[in-house]
């Protein structure tokens, strides 16, 4: 089981979702938030910290709090969210090629994926067990693909409001 957490700003609306899939990619749980539209006053008061606050402290925190399953790994495509929970790992595709898991710096790793690599960033050093799980998942399924589904779902949520 693996979780995917994503928070986006779509046409001025801030919305988030969390999708839990099994190792075949079959969805087990999906939760999403109300799209939030900050008022002009809120934009002024929060200034440049608005998006970080909204995305991490409000949207991601609410989603993690409401999650019914407990996946050991939650991947995100949003750098601000790795502070929310030690299970949350930032993932991105890399052009580098690696044969095995490699630690680039503290909390940053390259994991082999489809002949290239994915870059994993964590707020703290990952255990060998977690790294093995990431490697295993990357071999079993297209580890980036569920983000596409999340993106489509969140766009759909925003389009209806």
């Amino acid at each position: 089981m693996i979780g995917y957490l994503s928070v986006k700003k779509i046409e001025g609306k801030h919305v988030g979702g969390i999708l839990v899939v099994d190792k075949r990619g079959i969805p087990i749980e999906f939760k999403y938030t109300d799209p939030l539209v900050p008022t002009e006053l809120q934009k002024i008061l929060y200034g440049s910290s608005l998006e970080t606050y909204l995305h991490a402290d409000i949207i991601a925190a609410s989603l993690l709090n409401k999650l019914e399953n407990n996946p050991p790994i939650i991947l995100t495509d949003h750098p601000d969210l790795i502070e929310m929970d030690k299970r949350v790992l930032l993932v991105s595709e890399s052009t580098e090629r690696v044969e095995s898991v490699r630690e680039v710096s503290e909390g940053e790793y390259l994991v082999p994926f489809q002949g290239r690599a994915i870059r994993i960033v964590s707020k703290e050093k990952l255990s060998q067990e977690i790294l093995e799980k990431v490697k295993e998942l990357s071999e079993e399924l297209d580890i980036m693909e569920p983000f596409e589904r999340l993106d489509r779902a969140l766009r759909y949520v925003c389009s209806g409001t």
Partner: peptide
């Protein structure tokens, strides 16, 4: 800010 979370399975 408050946001609600909905199931969307």
């Amino acid at each position: 800010y408050k946001t609600r979370v909905y199931p969307g399975n």
